[in-house]
Nucleic acid binder design. Structure first.
Lengths: 138, 138
DNA sequence: GTAGCTGCAAACTCTTTGCAACTCT
DNA sequence: AGAGTTGCAAAGAGTTTGCAGCTAC
């Protein structure tokens, strides 16, 4: 019998051979539930709300591990700290310069053009970041 | 008689009403001559080669000031420090993931599409970052 | 003369790490 | 049992800042 429940970070980590401790389970659940792009601090606070024994060091270590596994994407918008999000389908960001709100979008034309550009420069495209910074039209 | 010599950072700063000290003149010249995307550390070293009295604090203060004036563009590629470049014509970057080399490129299609995307989301585009990360084709 | 600039050193923020204790598997 | 994980506190990197002295205008 195959497992048809949606893939969670916890499953992905177990599959990667990691031990599943209480702290880790909590942090992964917080990330799975996040609909936004939380900072390390935010992940820490949300995790602490469930388990106050969780330390900042563990949050950092967990996020770094998830980044290395490619399960999460690390961003550094024009702020001096990192923000993370689940690595679901590929998309880009528009950051509201007034509120800091992050809007996600996808665009097939961008995907095609960036491939073409890398190719013309003699490179294989490995990764890409596109960030638009804008102000809400009044 | 108008001045037809190319615009330098020094002129732009003087025009902005800033005092032109020896240290500042040196740092601005270093940036004017830079053909790459130097880090703060690099700007510091190059400036020191001309005037060893220049301090790191002044380099940071100068770069922050130039950034605020929009004369320079601050980047944070996937490194944990900032890199700067003159704000000449608009372009994007392809970063060689193996060597860290930065290649600049421009693309009119990207410019059009990003405008369109911001518009569709109800935003006025203020700024934009596009970074491609790739590996040299063998 | 004075507002602005500077170097120094200390402070700050974000992030990483050594270590001893603990816990999944 | 043993390798992996944790919290703590200290260390690290990059960046900012208070202050007293100096300098361009």
């Amino acid at each position: 019998m195959e497992d048809h429940t949606p893939d969670t970070l916890e499953k992905a980590c177990t599959r990667a051979g990691l031990k599943m401790t209480g702290q880790r389970r909590t942090i992964l659940a917080v990330l799975d539930e996040a609909q936004d792009h939380p900072s390390v601090e935010t992940v820490y606070e949300r995790s602490r709300a469930h388990d106050s024994s969780i330390s900042m060091a563990t949050v950092y270590r967990t996020l770094n591990m998830l980044d290395e596994l490619g399960l999460v994407v690390r961003h550094e918008f024009k702020e001096n700290f990192a923000r993370y999000e689940l690595n679901m389908q590929h998309h880009h960001h528009l950051i509201d310069v007034d509120s800091g709100k992050v809007i996600e979008f996808q665009n097939i034309e961008i995907e095609q053009i960036k491939q073409k550009i890398a190719e013309e420069l003699g490179y294989d495209l490995i990764e890409c970041r596109l960030e638009l910074y804008g102000r809400k039209r009044t």
